[in-house]
């Protein structure tokens, strides 16, 4: 199964829509709830990152028998220092984003904690692509 979702930078009203639809799909497929929980956390954080930091992005969801692959590709500022961005508590989010309770510097670590495989490709001033894989078994 293959899905694509567009994400618009700055539009927090749609943050979580893709995660919610993927969650419903995985439930219908009878995937183990502990696996669904991990997918939801990783995808939600990736979605919010695009909304909070990028201009726009696309989420590509590929569900196969053995697992799910998520590719989250954005046009945005990129990440100058990936290891710093992966540090718990580090964030470059704006003050208005932080007031909403986002931008706590937990997004990328949450993705990493819940993924079986997680890779970041990023080019400063161009954008970032996250590759996330979670196995079903």
């Amino acid at each position: 199964m293959y899905f694509e979702y567009k994400v618009v930078g700055g539009d927090f009203t749609i943050a979580g829509v893709a995660s919610s639809q993927v969650k419903k799909t995985l439930k219908q497929l009878g995937i183990d709830s502990s696996i669904i929980k991990r997918v939801v956390v990783a995808l939600y954080e990736a979605e919010v990152n695009v909304v909070a930091h990028a201009y726009e992005g696309v989420i590509y969801v590929d569900i196969k028998g053995d697992g799910i692959k998520l590719k989250v590709e954005d046009k945005g500022p990129g990440i100058p220092d990936v290891s710093l961005a992966m540090t718990k508590g580090f964030s470059t989010a704006s003050s208005s984003v932080r007031e909403m309770g986002f931008g706590a510097g937990m997004g990328l670590p949450n993705i990493s904690d819940n993924a079986d495989s997680f890779r970041i490709e990023t080019v400063v001033d161009k954008g970032t692509t996250l590759h996330i894989e979670i196995k079903f078994h």
Binding site: E45, V48, G101, A104, N110, D113
Partner: peptide
Amino acid sequence: DLLSDVMGHANEGQLWIT
């Protein structure tokens, strides 16, 4: 009050105080 904290660490069936 941090959404990522709740996302990462709250569990099903809990009440969220915020």
